[in-house]
Design a protein around this nucleic acid. Sequence first.
DNA 1: AAATATTACTTGTATTTACAAGTAGTTTTT
DNA 2: AAAAACTACTTGTAAATACAAGTAATATTT
Lengths: 238, 238
Amino acid sequence: MTGPGRVPQYRRLYEILKRHIAEGIYREGDLLPSENELCQLYSMTRPTVRQSLGKLAGEGYITKHQGKGSIVHQFPRDIGILSISGTTTAVGDRNLKTRIIVRPVIKPWPDDFMFALSELEKESGCVYMERLRLLDDSPIFFDISYITNLNLPRITSRQFENRSLFQILREHYGVEVRGGEQRIRAIPASGRTGRFLGIARGQPVLHLERKMETSVNGLFLYSSIYCNTIKYSIFGRF
Amino acid sequence: MTGPGRVPQYRRLYEILKRHIAEGIYREGDLLPSENELCQLYSMTRPTVRQSLGKLAGEGYITKHQGKGSIVHQFPRDIGILSISGTTTAVGDRNLKTRIIVRPVIKPWPDDFMFALSELEKESGCVYMERLRLLDDSPIFFDISYITNLNLPRITSRQFENRSLFQILREHYGVEVRGGEQRIRAIPASGRTGRFLGIARGQPVLHLERKMETSVNGLFLYSSIYCNTIKYSIFGRF
DNA sequence: AAATATTACTTGTATTTACAAGTAGTTTTT
DNA sequence: AAAAACTACTTGTAAATACAAGTAATATTT
């Protein structure tokens, strides 16, 4: 028995390799050590190593090529939940700030909410908040979040400034955000949205509507995100 | 020995289940047969079945829950351009038409091309074409494609009307499109783009810049896609 | 010199086996 | 009746093994 028990081995290797890629130990275009080499290096069997690499490949950190190896990609740097890339230069570990526009408050759901809600959710109401994310001091995301008000004591008094919402949910409530669905469209900026993002009313804004699942049954996290894509664009792999 | 040889078993099951979901044999929220049941039904071992389910989960057709099972998701009314399968397959049985705006021609690459090109690509030039995709007779995508002109004889004289570009590449040239990267932004419609999409000049349009990798080394497929997201939105899982 | 074959790598697919951990309904105990 | 324990399921993690298939460099043949 070698494992620490709680964290799966494949996840351990996944985290290590991801960190190495982020830190630039492996560079864009480099080949990762072969699966057999990784087996030896980390004392795992190939299926386990392959599980790690599969996860990395799924998220775009590497692409695998039969007979050749796994090629590293530098790009998917997440800023919060989204990956973005600059038009001129690549986004590294830039200066990302979060500003609270509306502090978390408990409210009923809006009447015309963007996703269908269960009865339980409707009864519980939601925690509402608005945040603005700035990259190098330019506003990029205006984020309106709705969290089902289910067993989240004292959430309205937490310190959200410059901290990830995901982080708070994980650390204080043991809630893991897993994934979800999203709709994307281009819309004209409203007066208010435009003001936050520094965009004239009516000018194009990227709008994302997301529903995220969590490890807690029935607890979902919704957000409506407006993006200023003049200088930066949303980046993704598929 | 039961397998037909060429198509992997896990892929066979993946295709079957995907078709069953698309056809509504499994409905939104249904539980798929358990992994052990699938093993028996299709004479496979559990790792193989899990490989199929993993692929389905990765593409958002199901979500897996430990101790419970795999829950089916249907893509009801949104267009899944964010998945590798391409527009034609993902939309399902809707009325999707393709109209050629500019027939394929061999050209040099534009000077300010949206992605970096290798020397080989620059020398080879590209096959250029413009297509308009209509969904239920409303124009939704205006698609400008660039394919590296590498060993694609007679491509300029192929019949592209109402056929997927991916399909032609696969059937006539044995080229499989695998995946790639994309950038998304909201931009104001130009006069020409707006005309094709039925949108006033300056109104918001979703713009995707994609680079797709293929099974052929050095052969990439680029496209610049303008989307009318007034009636439909781009849907994706993550 | 050029074409072909070999070789030593790489990842891909698949089986078999074992146990851990989460879920939900049933039974037993309190 | 309510709480606790049990049970029979589900998916998750992991090992050991085998062979297929793609890649690229080297060696051989033509």
